[in-house]
């Protein structure tokens, strides 16, 4: 009976941790989108606005933190692609490249996909 109780406890812990992780992932995504939206808004208003630079640095820092927290859940190759996009933002902005906005959208899309894949939808399970 002790074993059964321990197993029920472990299952309960796994489910709780999964729900908590999903919640944290969602919360972190919202925070990330705030940064992305802010950068996008400023960029659309004025491409050379100097407020973008510190924001990009903040975004980089935030992503590092996000990466560490989520790497125990998600395959590192998936996170690597997003890291590449985050790292590319600053040089793209400096070179006044059109791909800057598409890279922002790419980060948003990939992180949304991460959350969707973690959510126990039927298509994700199967």
């Amino acid at each position: 009976m002790k074993r059964v109780k321990l197993c029920v406890l472990i299952i309960f812990m796994i489910i709780s941790m999964s729900i908590y992780t999903l919640y944290t992932l969602g919360k972190r995504n919202i925070e990330l989108y705030k940064y992305l939206d802010q950068i996008k808004q400023i960029y659309l208003a004025d491409k050379n606005d100097q407020r973008i630079e510190p924001l990009l640095a903040e975004l980089g820092g935030y992503w590092r933190d996000y990466y560490v927290n989520i790497s125990f859940l998600i395959q590192s190759s998936q996170l690597g692609d997003i890291s590449d996009s985050v790292a590319r933002l600053y040089p793209l902005w400096q070179s006044d490249c059109d791909e800057f906005l598409s890279e922002i959208e790419s980060i948003r899309y990939q992180t949304a996909l991460l959350y969707d894949n973690e959510f126990p939808n039927l298509h994700s399970i199967i």
């Binding site: 009976m1 299952i11 796994i14 590192s76």
Partner: peptide
């Protein structure tokens, strides 16, 4: 594969074993 998080091993192992113990109960 170090690209895979440890949880991809830990969670299924614990889940399978726990489910088996509960089923046998």
């Amino acid at each position: 594969d170090i690209n895979l998080p440890m949880t991809t091993g830990i969670i299924p192992i614990l889940t399978l074993v726990c489910v088996d113990v509960i089923m046998s109960a």
